[in-house]
Amino acid sequence: MKVNSTVALTFTLLALMLGAGVLTGTWGFAQGRTALKGIKQPDSRPTKGAAAKNTSTREDIVLLKEEDVLKSVKEKMNTGGRGASPSPSPSAKPDQNKPDAAPTSAKLPMTTQASGVAMDVTGIRKQGEYLLLDVALKNNSDQAVKFLYSFLNVTDDKGRLIVADTTGLPPELPSKSDRFTGTISIPNSMLDDAQKISLQLSDYPDQKLQLKMADIPIK
């Protein structure tokens, strides 16, 4: 049987093309595998990411002193069993221009001192919806003393904690300082049937100096 030359040439070309395709594919696969050698799929397990995130979070945590946290909570609580009363807003502070009500029968001034620092209560009066205590601080020691008045502890004769606001008192008393005066404002609604109150003020942040004044008559 005589083979047509055109058919033979066609089959020869097809065979060459097939061989070239196989050879090219094999070479390309080998090159790609060599290029990707050493590369691994990233670990996308959620537990590992969460652990890393938690580790980072724990490293950023700043621990607060337990004493500071407890005192901050205490000043905002009313332990008298009637529920906490909202602290007065700045706009509701007593108007200093209004005439004062009659002062209480307390024998003033009342004085306390510790480590060369003296605190006086020089006046007690009612003004509008507030009880105002005129106070004075003086540092006779050789070291400056700092105060954080949000830590001022005010309690009544029934042991209830009272929220109070201070104005005019400096955050720091320099050594051998002059006498600084200010006011402690207490809402009448928080005093209820109380007859006496007590004050306690500590220096900040050491809290080694304790100025205490108990049984201040308010009625």
Rank of each mutant, 00 (worst) to 15 (best):
V3G: 04
S5I: 08
T6K: 09
V7E: 15
V7Y: 01
A8H: 04
T12N: 01
T12M: 09
L14M: 10
L18R: 03
G19A: 09
A20C: 03
T24K: 07
T24Y: 14
F29L: 15
T34Y: 02
A35E: 10
A35H: 11
I39E: 09
K40I: 06
Q41C: 06
Q41D: 12
P42G: 01
D43R: 05
S44F: 10
R45V: 06
T47G: 14
G49H: 15
G49A: 13
A50M: 14
A50P: 00
K53N: 12
T55C: 11
S56I: 10
R58P: 08
R58Q: 15
E59D: 03
E59N: 14
I61C: 00
L64K: 14
E66F: 15
V69M: 10
K71N: 06
K74E: 13
E75P: 03
E75W: 01
E75I: 01
G81D: 07
R82L: 12
R82T: 10
S85T: 04
S87V: 10
S87L: 02
P88C: 08
P90Q: 03
S91T: 13
A92P: 04
N97I: 12
D100I: 05
D100K: 11
A101I: 12
S105K: 14
A106C: 05
K107Q: 12
L108H: 02
P109Q: 07
T111D: 09
A114E: 11
S115V: 06
V117L: 08
D120M: 05
D120A: 15
V121S: 02
V121A: 01
G123A: 14
G123P: 00
Q127G: 04
Q127M: 11
G128T: 11
G128D: 10
G128R: 05
L133E: 08
D134Q: 04
V135R: 06
V135Y: 11
A136H: 00
A136L: 03
F151R: 02
F151I: 01
N153L: 12
T155I: 12
T155Y: 07
R160S: 13
R160W: 15
L161N: 14
I162G: 01
A164K: 08
D165I: 06
D165A: 10
T166V: 09
L169N: 09
P170H: 13
P171Q: 13
P174M: 04
S175R: 08
S175Y: 09
S175D: 09
K176P: 04
K176L: 05
S177V: 11
D178P: 08
D178K: 06
T183W: 04
P187F: 06
P187E: 02
P187H: 02
L191R: 14
D192H: 13
D192L: 10
A194N: 13
A194T: 05
K196L: 13
P205S: 00
P205R: 10
L211A: 01
K212W: 00
D215Q: 09
P217R: 00
P217T: 04
K219V: 15
